[in-house]
Each structure stands twice: as C-alpha cells, then as structure tokens.
C-alpha cells in the first residue's frame, strides 16, 4: 500500500528580492506513513515551512509531485490539519468558536458542534477556557486551542510548523508531553517542524534532517526509543548528541 504522504522529486523556486531565483527546495523526496510521527529539522531557511505548506496545499510545487492518501494534493483540506508557529487563532472568536469553525464549515448543527468543541478543548486541558478570547489566553494555551481546532476535524495528518517555538521552556515541555499523548490516543500522523534538537529527540519516530542552499534532505534517522521518553536517561542523551552531530556535520 502507498504511504499516506508521498513527496516525489519536489523542487520549489522563489524569486528573491533582487529578482533572482532561489531554490527553497531541491529534489526532495519523502514518504510518511499513516500514524507516523516525523520531525523535520534544519536551520532557518532550509525549506521546512515550504515543504509543510506544499503538503498542506497552500501552494503547488514548481517541480515534482505531492500526493496525499493516493491522490495529488489539491486545495487545503481539514484532512490535513495545520498548526502554525504564530498565533493563527481568529482573534474575534472565543476558544470554543475557533474550535467550532471547521465543524461549522462542514455544516454540522450547533448542538453537536458545541459538544465536539467542548470535548476537543477538554482533551487539551482547556475545558475552563471555552469562552475566552485568544488575547485573554497565554501563549501555551493559545497553541493548545490551535491543536484542538485542527484535531476536532479528525484529520489524518497534523502539520505543525514550529508550534511551540514562541512559548517558554517549561510550558513547551508540557505541550510536548500532551502532543505525544494526543498522537497516541488518536493515531493521527504528525509532521512536526522544529529547529530544536531536544524537541525532535523527544517527539519523533523519525527525524528528517534538512540543509539549506538549496533546501534538501540531508538524512533521515529512525528513533526507536519507547514513549514517553525520559530526558534524564542515558539513551536520550546519546540520541541528543547523535542528532546534534547529524545536524551540524
């Protein structure tokens, strides 16, 4: 059977400000299985966001093909939930309304929608913040709402672009714990972009290391440490060093 996500020979060209060509991605091929947790890691500008946006369907690749569940990726779809780095929650909607948005677009009735949104927010530990507006929530809480907003549509993959980069370190580790738990509970695939080695080592079953100029895949490493991972363990320290090396070489 084909993989859930198939990226084949994808290149993406952008125009620089001086009008020159900039290969954000060059000949990238990548397969991601259903239920898999993959981290894309690499320095700024190596095309991580571009790759994620191609999978999401926000743009078409200049070259190559991106397939999802056997079909070419077309328009963005709730099947491929996206969680952005910055706060992409709708500021004029409460947490509950944000989570209900996708269900509403699907034409789900009000009562059912409310119930589902309540459940989704409870799963990320925010049952008490239902009626709060994003500006009344902390950075970590907002990202929880963003995760709930994507998950409530029961996507087959969650595309996350440095979702925890802007929150403080303590909050980040709890968000990571919760993400692993949600991933295990739902069986959703996760493609998680980060430039943080610790984060990749803690989360991923597979780490895809990228390099810039032009953006391409340097190597792909499987991690078979069981979950939940212990940051204090010797294996984790080893893994961390190993990933750091792969990134740096």
């Amino acid at each position: 059977m084909a993989s859930l996500i198939e990226v084949e020979g994808v290149s993406q060209i952008f125009e620089t400000r001086e009008g020159k060509a900039n290969w954000a991605l060059w000949q990238v091929s990548l397969e991601i299985e259903a239920g898999e947790f993959v981290c894309l890691i690499g320095p700024s500008g190596c095309g991580k966001t571009t790759l994620l946006h191609l999978i999401a369907g926000f743009m078409k690749p200049s070259e190559g093909s991106v397939r999802f569940a056997g079909a070419p990726v077309g328009e963005p779809s709730p099947d491929r939930g996206v969680v952005f780095q910055e706060y992409a929650l709708f500021g004029w909607m409460t947490a509950r309304q944000n989570v209900e948005f996708g269900l509403r677009m699907r034409g789900m009735g009000r009562a059912e929608r409310r119930e589902k949104a309540r459940e989704a927010l409870a799963r990320v530990g925010l049952e008490r913040a239902l009626e709060r507006y994003p500006h009344e929530l902390s950075g970590g809480m907002r990202q929880r709402v963003a995760v709930a907003r994507a998950l409530v549509n029961e996507p087959r993959v969650l595309l996350m672009d440095e979702p925890f980069a802007a929150v403080d370190a303590i909050t980040r580790t709890t968000l990571q714990d919760d993400l692993v738990r949600l991933w295990q509970q739902t069986g959703v695939s996760v493609v998680f972009v980060t430039h943080n080695v610790d984060e990749a080592a803690f989360l991923a079953q597979r780490v895809v290391v990228m390099r810039p100029h032009p953006g391409s895949i340097k190597r792909s490493m499987n991690i078979d440490l069981p979950y939940p991972r212990q940051r204090s363990s010797a294996e984790f320290a080893q893994l961390y060093a190993h990933l750091g090396e792969a990134l740096g070489e």
Partner: peptide, 29 residues
C-alpha cells in the same frame, strides 16, 4: 489581513465566501 488567517480558514475547510465573510471581513473590521 494576515495570510495566516486565510490559510487557517482554508485548511479548516472554508470556501471562498466563508473566507471572505467569516474571516477576512471580521479581521479587517
């Protein structure tokens, strides 16, 4: 209007009219 809002709406399944009246207009209000 921040591109992020529009991309979010699209990936949550909103069509062009919903993007226009439920996202772009309130964001621009």
């Amino acid at each position: 209007v921040p591109k992020l809002y529009v991309q979010s709406a699209l990936s949550l399944g909103a069509g062009p009219l919903n993007v226009m009246f439920r996202v772009v207009l309130p964001a621009a209000m």
